[in-house]
């Protein structure tokens, strides 16, 4: 399952989620502002607290709303 680490009031997170939906990709939203465990996970993956972070395996990730990189990582 694809995970989208995000925060509330984040237009780039919203764009990333809309994009994934438009491509028919199912994903789980993990809000790092509301959940400290998710915040730690996100920091482990990307080394920072920037969002959106999109990942499927928890290792490879795309930071920010970058369609080309998202497509490449997810093979869509």
């Amino acid at each position: 399952m694809v995970k989208v680490y995000s925060i509330t009031q984040c237009p780039w997170c919203d764009k990333a989620k809309k994009y994934l939906t438009s491509k028919g990709v199912e994903f789980e939203v993990r809000n790092i502002e509301e959940n400290e465990d998710y915040a730690k996970e996100c920091a482990q993956i990307s080394g920072d607290t920037m969002v959106p972070v999109i990942t499927e395996d928890g290792k490879n990730f795309v930071l920010g709303f970058d369609k080309a990189k998202i497509d490449a990582m997810l093979g869509i």
């Binding site: 925060i7 237009p11 780039w12 502002e33 920072d48 607290t49 920037m50 969002v51 920010g64 970058d66």
Partner: peptide, 17 residues
């Protein structure tokens, strides 16, 4: 508009860093 910085950055930051 939050989109006005589109060319510069496409992410937000928890607690602004």
């Amino acid at each position: 508009d939050p989109g006005s910085n589109e060319e510069i950055q496409t992410f937000c930051k928890l607690n602004y860093g």
